[in-house]
Amino acid sequence: MVTIEHYNVSDAQLLSRVIGDIDAPYQTFDRQHGLGIHTRSLADYWNLSGNERTVSIMKKVDVIQAILSDNNAVAEENRKVLDGVGVFGINVMASPGAGKTSMILETFTRLPEGTKLCVVEGDLASSLDAELIANKGIPVVQINTGGGCHLDASMIRNALPRLPLDEIQILMVENVGNLVCPANFLLGTHLNVVVASTPEGHDKPFKYPGMFNAADVVLINKFDLSEVFDFDLEYFSSGVRMLKPDVPIIPISCRTGAGLDEWVEWLLENR
């Protein structure tokens, strides 16, 4: 007797497992139809020739593996490299134009003596931001993704040997300007900073929950213009807190300098 277990019947697939001799009459069982006794043998049913004894049957294989497990593994390697030299890595994510580069430059000027910074710049194209940063005497590596919408862990792995990690304490990775894709890709950094800005509007946490869910700290840049753009801080904050109740939200202005001391103080305490 052969038993075929149909243990998952979907519209597209019948998953079966055959137990026993395929030359004997067989029975089937599934949730929809219950037990079925068949008088023919399975070999007969599949129209197998006398010498053919192997048939293809669908089998379900449990995987349960993170889709980006390869990237996550490289991110872990990066983390070990950074931990090995005592460097605190920060992944800076934001929309284009929110003020990531300005925030990095303003952070740099506020770091205490002996705390040094270097930067990985991610952009689709150009080295404009890297030049701005290099002009301040900050070590920087530019990554051009050539149209790619996010940085991934292997890009960071390639950039790390080109940075003076022995001489610095903080690595700022400026991700590609984008509130969607970068949130999915771990880099191996220790902290995710999301830089929002008042011209983008106060509804961004509601519309891009994936990004704000990934945030360890949220900065709201251009806060000196909040009245001009009718930016409702409470509404914005309620959206962030739905996802991450304890995430600090720090309004800043890279133009006036407001809030930046508070941010740098928070960073130095929490690194």
């Binding site: 293809s56 049957i57 294989v61 593996q65 889709i67 929950p209 309620s238 739905m242």
Partner: peptide, 25 residues
């Protein structure tokens, strides 16, 4: 109230695959 807490919804994995399994007699 705006005091909502959202959980879940960030899952991101391959659960299972259906493969051809060779079964001999």
């Amino acid at each position: 109230s705006v005091a909502l807490r959202i959980s879940g919804g960030m899952e991101f994995h391959v659960e299972s695959i259906d493969v051809e399994d060779d079964v001999g007699s």
